[in-house]
């Protein structure tokens, strides 16, 4: 039975993630070029786009295939696992939700909720720090943008 501290003797695994990302990137570039070609009225409409998309797609696929090789040595040690990426992914989702909610909740309320949830996600548990940072922080930022810089931000309370 293998001991948990034994060196990793499992067979090196191919990395499919980079290839999937590169393939999606290449596909997006080619679909975009195809869509432009479809509506183009003349050569100048796609003169830059077509060659750029072709070069980009080939380069992305090349990079994806090259990255399939199993990692060895130091690169293998420092590679981040998806488990380590849970917090960043949740923060990405939270940022997207903040952008989607801002037109309805306003930047004042939306920012307060975003700061509160982002702090909770990163381990802050002191209720007064959470309240101070989210409420006072959001109020200060909204005031700076709306009153000081005269930016017409969508707001709910201000």
């Amino acid at each position: 039975m293998a001991h948990p501290t034994d060196p990793d003797t499992s067979a090196p695994r191919r990395r499919w993630g980079p290839l999937v990302f590169a393939a999606l990137l290449a596909l997006a570039m080619l679909v975009y070029a195809w869509s432009v070609m479809g509506i183009a009225r003349g050569l100048t409409d796609w003169l830059l786009i077509l060659p750029v998309a072709l070069i980009g797609a080939v380069a992305a696929l090349w990079a994806g295939v090259a990255d399939m090789k199993p990692l060895t040595g130091l690169a293998k040690t420092v590679e981040r696992t998806w488990g380590e990426d849970t917090k960043p992914i949740l923060l990405l989702v939270l940022t997207g939700a903040y952008a989607c909610a801002a037109p309805f909740a306003g930047f004042d309320v939306g920012t307060a909720v975003f700061i509160l949830l982002a702090l909770l996600l990163q381990g802050e548990r002191s209720w007064w720090k959470l309240a101070l940072a989210s409420l006072a922080g959001a109020a200060l930022m909204t005031w700076i943008f709306t009153d000081l810089l005269s930016v017409r931000l969508p707001t709910l309370l201000f």
């Binding site: 930047f107 700061i115 982002a118 930022m141 930016v151």
Partner: peptide, 17 residues
């Protein structure tokens, strides 16, 4: 943990501006 949400918020508001 404080800098990240604050800078993201300022960036969002700045982008709106």
């Amino acid at each position: 943990s404080y800098l990240i949400p604050f800078v993201l918020s300022v960036s969002m508001m700045g982008a709106y501006a």
